[in-house]
């Protein structure tokens, strides 16, 4: 049951991102226009340093563009307060990072629960229940009490995906989710993401270096030197 890809989830218009140091000005993104529709699986490709991760940070409301507009719910993000932006990240977006970014001091279950800690009105019991469901989806129900250091790379990334899923976000932003994994584990993670998109209609934007993985997604955006080339 896949949603018709017509409802825009995120809209980026004329986005520029310039990093300015005292001597050098680096243009990371140059006039990027992009709309992500509900239920899509979009991949972003390009050589290292072409602005893929910067674009994903902007889509995830983790950074601000130098110029241009990002719209969420048809409302420009600059009109949201910092608190509202934190709320948007919590409700609408789930992140999966290349290096997992799990908190080593917390168990798998506590790591997965984390996004719900910042959502008002959800008690400990419900948090636990939903964390168990999310871990079940990624096939890690048996590892809830483990710590990240006790897991393989592939398992850690599954935990990270469960953490991204628990808040039932509209969109998952995955930054090279298989970049640190061998090909077998990479394929497992890719299959998991495809399953989420195709069976549950989760919108996914994934940065990847892997041409084969990119071909499995519906839409491919190519970046070169900060500009959209395809």
């Amino acid at each position: 049951m896949k949603a018709t890809p017509l409802t825009p989830v995120l809209r980026l218009s004329e986005i520029e991102k310039v990093y300015q140091t005292r001597d050098i000005e680096t243009v990371a993104l140059n006039r990027v226009n992009l709309t992500i529709y509900k239920g899509e699986f979009v991949s972003i490709m390009g050589p290292s340093g072409c602005g893929k991760s910067t674009l994903l940070s902007l889509m995830g409301l983790l950074d601000e563009p130098t110029s241009g507009t990002i719209e969420v719910n048809s409302r420009p993000v600059e009109s949201y307060s910092d608190k509202e932006l934190a709320g948007l990240r919590n409700l609408k977006i789930g992140f999966v990072f290349q290096s997992y970014h799990l908190i080593n001091d917390l168990t798998v279950l506590d790591n997965v629960e984390l996004p719900l800690l910042y959502r008002p009105g959800i008690g400990g019991k419900e948090r636990r229940q939903r964390a168990l469901e999310a871990l079940d989806k990624v096939g890690l129900s048996a590892r809830t009490g483990h710590f990240p250091s006790q897991l393989s790379g592939g398992q850690r990334q599954r935990v990270a995906i469960a953490r991204a899923l628990i808040g039932r976000p509209e969109i998952i932003l995955a930054d090279e989710p298989t970049g640190n994994l061998d090909s077998v584990m990479g394929e497992e993670i890719m299959a998991l993401l495809l399953g989420l998109n195709q069976q549950e209609g989760t919108t996914i934007v994934m940065v990847t270096h892997d041409e084969q993985q990119a071909r499995q997604t519906e839409r491919l955006i190519r970046l070169f030197d900060g500009s959209q080339v395809g």
Partner: peptide
């Protein structure tokens, strides 16, 4: 810093 980044990414406000 990684933990702080993750918490912020998943919706932690500065106050939290």
């Amino acid at each position: 810093s990684s933990e702080i980044g993750v918490r912020k990414a998943f919706g932690a406000t500065s106050d939290a």
